Amino acid sequence: MTQTTTARLDGLTLRVMVTVVFGFLLLPVVIVVLTSFTTQSFPAIPQEGVSLKWYAELLADQKLLDALTVSLIVATASAVLSAIVGTIAAVGFVRGEFPYKEQISTAMLLPIIISPVITGIALVRYFSTVGLSSGYPALVLGHTVLSLPYVFLLVRSELLTFDQDLERASRILGADPVTTFRHVTGPIISPAILAGGFIAFVVSFGEFTATQFLISPDTSTVPVVIYTMLRTGLTPTINALSVVLIVVMLLLALSSRQLSSS
């Protein structure tokens, strides 16, 4: 067997393995999509027919719609806040020099290292100490704490490979630090900021464990409501909601990629 034939077989084997792995990972998503169009009162395959009944039920379920609104508001606010604070922190850690910088940098990653249960309990204790009640403020701040490390890591990595001669040239030409960041540094690291913001949005939208400690009766998020519904019985309405969320996330991912490449 020639080396060319061996290389082709190896390439074919690799493609087959990759296809099998991705098929295994995407199979649950496909099942969720298929069962959202069932005519039965419970998710089942094979189906007896195809219907949009459960999407109509979703639009009529005010509790789910309210939870979706809360999740979108909280995820958007925490993503924007994480992007701003994470970028400022990354610039400070990369460009600044101060004692115990590496130790503090590691401590900033604790929300993604320790259990969300511990983080949720700690946030509740802290918010009760400062007099911040549960609801939107607690949810936004809590989710920002949980998603901030992702933005910090991405932006810091981008800054570590950044050519500082560009900033020095801008300063030599008379630009102040703010102008330099707006017209030189910011546009170059913007893909990392956008990617970090998108990850922060996804993390916030799907966060359940710590969120249980931060919600109020009027600010339940989608994961919490779905968990509550699952305890009483699974209906295809949840599958319909899942399909809507999948489409939204795909659109956001494509938009983020388009903005990053433009």
Rank of each mutant, 00 (worst) to 15 (best):
T106Y: 15
R156W: 06
S133I: 11
H143C: 07
G131I: 11
P116W: 06
L153Y: 05
H143S: 05
I113M: 09
F152I: 07
A169W: 00
V140G: 04
V140A: 09
P149H: 07
T161I: 05
R156C: 03
P99I: 13
L141F: 14
S133T: 11
L141W: 10
D163A: 08
L123P: 00
Y150S: 10
V145A: 08
S128Q: 14
V94Y: 02
R95L: 10
P116D: 01
R95P: 05
I118F: 12
Y150I: 03
I104S: 14
V130R: 06
L166P: 13
L123S: 04
Y150Q: 09
Y150G: 05
T144F: 03
R95M: 09
G96H: 04
A122R: 01
S134E: 03
I114R: 10
L153M: 09
I114E: 10
L132S: 07
V155L: 03
V145L: 15
I118M: 15
V151A: 00
T119L: 13
P149K: 01
L139N: 02
F152S: 06
V94I: 02
P137T: 02
F98N: 08
F98C: 06
F162G: 02
L110V: 13
T106V: 15
E102S: 14
R156M: 05
T144K: 06
Q103I: 14
Y100V: 05
F98P: 04
E102L: 09
E97R: 13
A107G: 14
G120W: 05
G142M: 04
V124T: 13
F98R: 10
L148K: 04
G142R: 07
Y100P: 09
I104H: 12
I114D: 12
T161P: 01
A138P: 04
S128H: 11
S115M: 09
V130P: 05
Y100H: 11
Y126D: 08
D165A: 12
P149V: 03
T106Q: 15
Q103W: 15
P99H: 04
T106F: 15
S105I: 01
V140D: 09
P116C: 00
E97Y: 11
S157T: 08
F127D: 02
P99F: 01
L110M: 14
L148C: 08
L141Q: 06
L146D: 00
V117M: 13
I118N: 12
L154E: 03
L110R: 12
E158M: 14
L160A: 06
L154Q: 01
V145T: 14
E97A: 12
L159Y: 07
G120L: 10
E158T: 00
V130S: 02
E97I: 06
L154Y: 04
F152H: 05
L132N: 07
G96P: 07
A169N: 10
S128E: 14
P149Y: 03
G96Y: 07
V130Y: 11
A138N: 03
Y150E: 02
